[in-house]
Design a protein around this nucleic acid. Structure first.
Length: 415
DNA sequence: TCTGGGGTCCTAGGACCC
DNA sequence: TCTGGGGTCCTAGGACCC
């Protein structure tokens, strides 16, 4: 199999952008974020600082760590620009996140040279034109290209030539594989499996028993370099959600109602913008001790009106709390909509279509509410997101994370 | 300053149907 | 009448990814 798959991954992306924008930060340990580290520069990583770590822990590990504010608009612009460089070579680009993408250059080597040459050109252009380091892996499969780019970091290029795949994988730790997180890594280690080579030599039957059928099969395939996944350029979202960390709040309606309204508003406005709606509403409540529970309800028809999602979410949260009467404080609420479908007008028929159990009081006004929501969406498009909203959500201005960052994390819902 | 926010996929049990 | 098997959908929980 010719090695035409590229995986390109910007190095320590947010931190690199900050160092690009502010030369004083170059060569220094920096962290983007505050309460939690969103990204760390390589200088900070040398101290053990990494994304997801609390700011306090990071400061303990690296007292001279510099925290810097987020230039979120620049992250988006530069991330888009780097992906655009890939698109200069092939339309077969699958973007994974703001700073990472696969590309298949099989159809353009006659124009631009070997995959390795194209990868080197991309790296040079991103460095010259954007000022950012980017690592690229070149291999015959997505899984191998992804591992190659991780091995290439920082600021490197690794090509896995056809025929050398198993030599490349054999001694690498299983933790580098897609799908192996802390839990799986521990289970494998308990069986004496620490390298990908050892994993490849393990009978599939044992892996299925250890990790479950799907995960066992998947890992067995990947370890033996059987990965047939193609580049997918357009993907439809399967769910859309929003969450808010609350610190330590009493589990009362005064806390819950405005928060759920705000979250429902965030989720449904994104759905409406793409003329989408969803049938399943899921809420998540995290208690003070970080244990979390979820409750969900599936309707017969998709909805996207703010108030309808909010009211269902309230009912579900009430039910979840009723099941845990001793939990007096909550630390997070989340709302998610799944079973997404592109039937924007089905909502108009909702009051007639639902069985008694699901024909809740608010449903009769579904059409009117949907229309009111759309009017509000349009006003926001013109005057800005904060210009208008349900009064109760307007009170909810205490933000743990800027909206701009939330938007970076949002996936395009597709369509 | 006790750990952010947005996603995907899988599992297991129960309800329900054939 | 009893027992068994297979399939689909829903719900709750978990692991993992960026």
């Amino acid at each position: 199999m010719p090695a035409t798959i590229l995986h390109a991954d910007l190095d320590a992306f947010y931190a690199s952008v900050e160092q690009l924008l502010n030369p004083d930060l170059r060569g220094k340990p920096i962290a983007v974020g505050g309460g939690v580290v969103l990204a760390a520069s390589y200088e900070a990583k040398a101290f053990g600082v990494h994304g997801g770590m609390s700011g306090r822990k990071a400061r303990e590990l690296c007292p001279q760590l510099i925290f810097t504010g987020g230039n979120f608009a620049e992250y988006q612009r530069l991330g888009d620009a780097a992906i655009a460089v890939l698109h200069d070579y092939t339309p077969a680009v699958e973007r994974i996140s703001i700073d990472e993408a696969f590309a298949d250059v099989a159809g353009c080597t006659h124009l631009f040279g070997s995959p390795e040459t194209i990868a080197a050109t991309i790296r040079r252009r991103v460095r010259d034109e954007l000022g950012l380091p980017i690592s690229v892996g070149v291999a015959g499969t997505k899984h191998l290209a992804k591992i190659a780019s991780q091995v290439a970091k920082p600021d490197g290029l690794v090509h896995v030539a056809p025929g050398t795949e198993m030599d490349f994988l054999r001694d690498l730790p299983v933790g580098l594989m897609w799908g192996v997180g802390p839990v799986t890594e521990r289970k494998l280690k308990e069986e004496g499996i620490e390298t990908i080579g050892q994993l490849a030599a393990t009978p599939g039957r044992s892996l299925r028993g250890l990790l479950g059928d799907a995960a066992g099969d998947k890992l067995a395939d990947l370890a033996s370099n059987r990965d047939s996944r193609k580049i997918v350029t357009h993907k439809r979202a399967r769910s859309a959600g929003a969450q808010s960390a609350l610190g330590h709040k009493p589990a009362t309606q005064a806390t819950i109602k405005p928060t759920l309204r705000h979250l429902a508003d965030r989720v449904t406005s994104r759905l409406r913008a793409k003329a989408l709606a969803g049938r399943t509403i899921t809420i998540r409540v995290r208690f003070a001790d970080m244990r979390a529970v979820t409750r969900s309800m599936t309707l017969d028809a998709p909805i996207s009106a703010t108030v309808m999602v909010a009211e269902i979410a309230e009912e579900l949260v009430r039910a979840a709390l009723a099941d845990h009467p001793r939990e007096r404080f909550i630390s997070l609420l989340a709302v998610s909509v799944s079973h997404i479908d592109d039937q924007p007008h089905i909502q108009l028929e909702l009051p007639l279509g639902l069985p008694d159990e699901k024909r809740r009081p608010g449903a009769r006004q579904g059409a009117a509410r949907w229309s009111a929501d759309r009017a509000m969406d349009k006003a926001r498009d013109r005057f800005g997101r904060d210009s208008i909203g349900y009064a109760v959500t307007q009170l909810e201005k205490r933000k743990s994370v800027p909206d701009a960052f939330r938007e970076l994390a949002e996936k395009d819902l597709g369509r």
